[in-house]
Design a protein around this nucleic acid. Sequence first.
DNA 1: CGCCCTATTGAATATAATCAACCGCCGTGG
DNA 2: CCACGGCGGTTGATTATATTCAATAGGGCG
Lengths: 232, 232
Amino acid sequence: MGIDSYRSNCERCIHTHLCEGTAANEQIAGHRLRVRRHDSLYRVGESPGNRIYCIRSGSFKLVMQRPGDAEQVIAFAMAPDFLGLNTLGAAGHTASAVALEDSEVCVIDWDRQAFRGRRQPMQRNGLHALLAGEIRRAQQATLLLHHTHSRQRMADLVLNLSQAYHSNGYSARRFRLPMSRCDIASYIGVSAECVSRLIDQFRRKGMLQLHRRDLTLLDPDALQRTAAGVEN
Amino acid sequence: MGIDSYRSNCERCIHTHLCEGTAANEQIAGHRLRVRRHDSLYRVGESPGNRIYCIRSGSFKLVMQRPGDAEQVIAFAMAPDFLGLNTLGAAGHTASAVALEDSEVCVIDWDRQAFRGRRQPMQRNGLHALLAGEIRRAQQATLLLHHTHSRQRMADLVLNLSQAYHSNGYSARRFRLPMSRCDIASYIGVSAECVSRLIDQFRRKGMLQLHRRDLTLLDPDALQRTAAGVEN
DNA sequence: CGCCCTATTGAATATAATCAACCGCCGTGG
DNA sequence: CCACGGCGGTTGATTATATTCAATAGGGCG
């Protein structure tokens, strides 16, 4: 599986407010896992085992299985996103989490009292808020898919990624795509060829530059307008 | 607003396990609301006020607002679904809930200790499971939208509705669509004209019958195959 | 160097949007 | 009672858009 466990270090984690305090965290969030590129953190159907994961570095794609062996990318996730929030009360994972690059996750045992927040109401609310936020996130994702034209969905994805990097302290203008063209195609619901053509189209219009997986946004406003569908 | 409040009756509610017991429920779930067809239970941007709702009768559509006045149907909901589960930790509602027919909802105050389940772990887990289930639901919805062809999405929607009615004790073969063609079009991401053509196409192939809003499934298996894309 | 895998490009075809006209049900008001 | 008007729904013709199939390019790696 390419998975490798070691002790956690919670000092720089932004989610410590969900636990009891930085001191106790390393007992709660017992260990971390390394997941190598293209390996799965978990797969469809596997028992979730009351664990959730927090991405500390790297990125993942969430893949659902269609009847008839076809796969579908339903989300991308990067640090500090959580994985497995949707598993409580489910018999098995409804999606697989596949690492897009060598990644590290923090494992949190759902059953530990400390995380479930018996002591402080804030912790309990924090967990509820986390779950509610994940619902909004998923609903927001449907909004992307509801764009009529593929160029709108593509522009929307690029802007979403840009914002994700930005809110994690990286450049919003320049970043490296961790996913393949094929993954992008699956996620935005077009053929892989179409992704190529869309990128080329954006490049010719001076909206962005993309060499292999290195992306530079040149005209975010134009992308915004494209996503909104006010111009072609 | 067309909203009208009265006392709740929890005796036949299937969600009492989330509360402390049937006896106490009517104090917890203080009151019900009637919402008339085309009226909103809540609107985008309104403060959620730490309430969630449980549909007791009728049905709703969830509508998101796009930049530039366009609206987008992102989900349909019917009894005994919950509404507003995605609001905890959010400043305002991210979607509007519009009644598709005259409906009744049960109002549950999120702040009440009883519902948050200080006493019994089962209650707390019940709430977590509820939220986690809503995440899965939203992710499932993205799966529908990921179908390449509109006929797949249409068939998928029909089957989903059928299953929803079935699991609530109604016929899976024969039911009344509470939503307009326009709502369907928005939800599955096609033009309203296309919905008409798809219905006609399904009818000519003997898969279903639809007179105004009364739907009869004639060949669910064929619909299944159409949704899966194995045949046209 | 040569292979494999990802990505790109081209040409023909399938699919759905758009624009426009029309239908029919339903409630309103004469 | 019937005529009217409006709205939701359907149908037709044209155009825009994306898929499919096929061929090609080019990097990473043994």
